[in-house]
Design a protein around this nucleic acid. Structure first.
Length: 280
DNA sequence: CCCCAGGCGACTC
DNA sequence: GAGTCGCATGGG
């Protein structure tokens, strides 16, 4: 399944599509290079992913980091079987069968999803890129890593404003400072999902939806179901009309249980790609 | 010009 | 607890 090479490693397992992984809205710090390969920056680590028909070539100086990052020890075929019990999920898992939930660094996830609030994905990527170029360390290949928490905590509201964060500037400044000067980041992984969500929503700029994304993408809690505008479309099209975000989230957690977060990614990707196609 | 984007916080009742 | 509103900025 995982075979080391001189330049990284090769993955020959199932359920891996790098375009789907990048486009399902879980991470923002990536780009497509001249060869058409997806390049991922996570923290200070970098990987170029070459998707071939029967194998995934991952070029990186830190293979073990990306074996963990891409969640390669988890069997997604089992999860797909478990959640594909109705028509819409059969379609969504067929459509996005190569999605995996990547294991991102916690503070990077918190910062990224504060930026994501009421924002579009292109602009989120632009803001994060500017964060990296302004504050991140330069990597060997000329790209910039994600800034350290310390460097973020030292910046004032004006800095975040100037790189285009809009009204999220204050949230970012406050939360980075709090994360740097407390033990919240160390404590979060030790808490159960309910208590971790409570602690997360005490942070500036973190409400229920952003907290659920942090729980899912930064703390690997798949028993949550982030409800955003795309999920609301799915809910209204295939289930019921109305209801608060909170109720929609509860409905889907009841439906999907411990696989809720993964199911959410299939539905998000399916609905968003379908909508984008129609608008072309 | 418009509406929308992986919402949040403050305020109201 | 639920409903409204302002918030910055850019994509389409």
């Amino acid at each position: 399944m995982i075979q080391p090479t001189e330049k990284g490693f090769i993955y020959t397992g199932k359920n891996f599509d790098i375009a789907q992984i990048c486009k399902c809205g879980q991470m923002f710090n990536f780009f497509v290079n001249q060869k058409g390969n997806y390049c991922i920056i996570s923290g200070q680590e970098f990987a170029e992913v070459e998707q071939k028909s029967n194998s995934i070539h991952i070029l990186t100086s830190n293979p073990s980091y990306f074996v963990n990052y891409f969640d390669l020890q988890t069997n997604y075929e089992e999860i797909i079987k478990a959640v594909s019990f109705n028509d819409i999920m059969l379609k969504a898992t067929y459509y996005g069968g190569g999605i995996r939930i990547v294991r991102q660094q916690l503070y990077e996830t918190i910062v990224s999803f504060i930026i994501s609030a009421c924002n579009n994905i292109k602009r989120i990527q632009g803001i994060i890129k500017r964060l990296c170029v302004n504050l991140g360390e330069r990597l060997q290949n000329g790209e910039y890593g994600f800034p350290t928490l310390k460097s973020l905590a030292e910046k004032d509201e004006n800095f975040f404003c100037n790189i285009g964060c809009g009204y999220r500037a204050k949230y970012l400044q406050e939360t980075c400072k709090v994360l740097y000067s407390t033990d919240i980041l160390q404590k979060l992984p030790t808490l159960n999902t309910i208590d971790a969500r409570k602690l997360l929503t005490s942070l500036s700029g973190v409400g229920n939806k952003v907290a659920d994304c942090i729980l899912l993408f930064g703390l690997q809690r798949t028993d949550v179901f982030p409800t955003d505008t795309w999920i609301k479309k799915v809910y209204h099209l295939h289930f019921e009309n109305g209801h608060s975000d909170e109720k929609i989230s509860d409905f889907f957690v009841d439906l999907f249980g411990r696989h809720s977060g993964v199911a959410q990614q299939y539905l998000f990707y399916y609905q968003r790609e379908e909508s984008l196609k129609k608008n072309k």
